[in-house]
């Protein structure tokens, strides 16, 4: 039977190619077919590049931090593409350096949420019964509070700094991840290969890591991209009300906050950070949606 397949495959090149194509490749091809998702990926990669190349674009200390009153509130020009803010700092410089903060804190916070929420969700989904009830009802309590409020409470209790902010936002997103991971785990838990793993004597930990979580990778990845967007928005929101990233450090939210006083006469001052937030969130959402469609084989 196998030889006939072999014969057929060598004679018909395209069939062989199709067979040899890996899962990842297939998913990638499906992703590429989704124009919006590709646009999202493109924008997001652009933002990451801007963040990585920030020191090449503008010096952090001289352009983004140092006050330079004589050149304050300048409209966009060749020298200052997005103009300067109320303290004479180049907005472009602050945007690209702010991107570093937003992306790092956003991703780190989601990593925290994924780690804690994922572990709790996996335990809850895999064990079921009373353990599931206890963990999930606790998560539900936190889920009742808006993320910003929850993060605010944690930051208010432990003080505002970068690490606390990351942990606070991470904890605020923990219940969401525990739900996502739990439901993903539950769909995989009952599958026969998990039962089969048990019959060869695998321990619970081995089963969860080797068989359950790895099969939930797709849906979890989708949620990660979508929640990184919300986390970035949460950081901006908290900075806007003064409880996030503090003043001299450039961050899109606090740039909006300090610029809003001058908004009437110098609209560009809020437009740049607003656009940056908008594009980041949009690109991540497009990317997440695209990934979800690409990873779902039913939508072939």
């Amino acid at each position: 039977m196998d030889e006939t397949v072999q014969k057929y495959t060598t004679r018909k090149g395209f069939f062989k190619q199709y067979k040899k194509k890996s899962r990842l490749q297939e998913t990638w091809n499906r992703f590429l077919r989704n124009k919006l998702a590709v646009i999202g990926l493109f924008i997001f990669v652009f933002i990451i590049l801007a963040a990585v190349a920030a020191p090449l674009i503008a010096n952090y200390d001289t352009d983004a931090i140092r006050v330079n009153v004589p050149s304050r509130l300048q409209s966009p020009s060749a020298k200052h593409i997005f103009g300067t803010d109320e303290l004479g700092r180049d907005i472009m410089a602050r945007i690209v350096h702010g991107a570093r903060i937003s992306l790092v804190v956003g991703c780190a916070a989601i990593a925290v949420a994924l780690f804690i929420g994922g572990a709790l969700g996996a335990i809850a989904g895999y064990s079921g019964g009373k353990i599931d009830d206890v963990i999930m009802r606790c998560m539900d309590v936190f889920l009742c509070l808006p993320d910003v409020l929850l993060a605010l409470a944690i930051v208010a209790a432990f003080g505002t700094n970068l690490v606390n902010l990351t942990i606070a936002i991470g904890l605020a997103f923990t219940p969401k991840f525990s739900r996502v991971v739990r439901s993903a785990v539950m769909t995989v838990r009952g599958v026969e290969y998990v039962e089969a793993a048990r019959t060869i004597g695998a321990t619970n930990t081995q089963i969860i890591t080797n068989h359950v979580l790895i099969n939930c990778f797709g849906p979890i990845m989708v949620q990660v991209t979508l929640y990184v967007a919300s986390a970035i928005l949460t950081i901006a929101a908290m900075s806007f009300i003064g409880l996030g990233i503090q003043a001299p450090i450039p961050e899109w939210g606090n740039m909006l906050a300090s610029g809003r006083v001058y908004m009437r006469d110098h609209a560009y001052i809020v437009m740049a950070p607003g656009l940056a937030i908008f594009l980041t969130i949009l690109s991540l959402n497009l990317l997440g949606d695209g990934l979800r469609d690409a990873l779902d084989p039913r939508l072939k």
Partner: peptide, 8 residues
Amino acid sequence: MTSLNPVH
């Protein structure tokens, strides 16, 4: 078809 893990 279902007793083997598709990702390993």
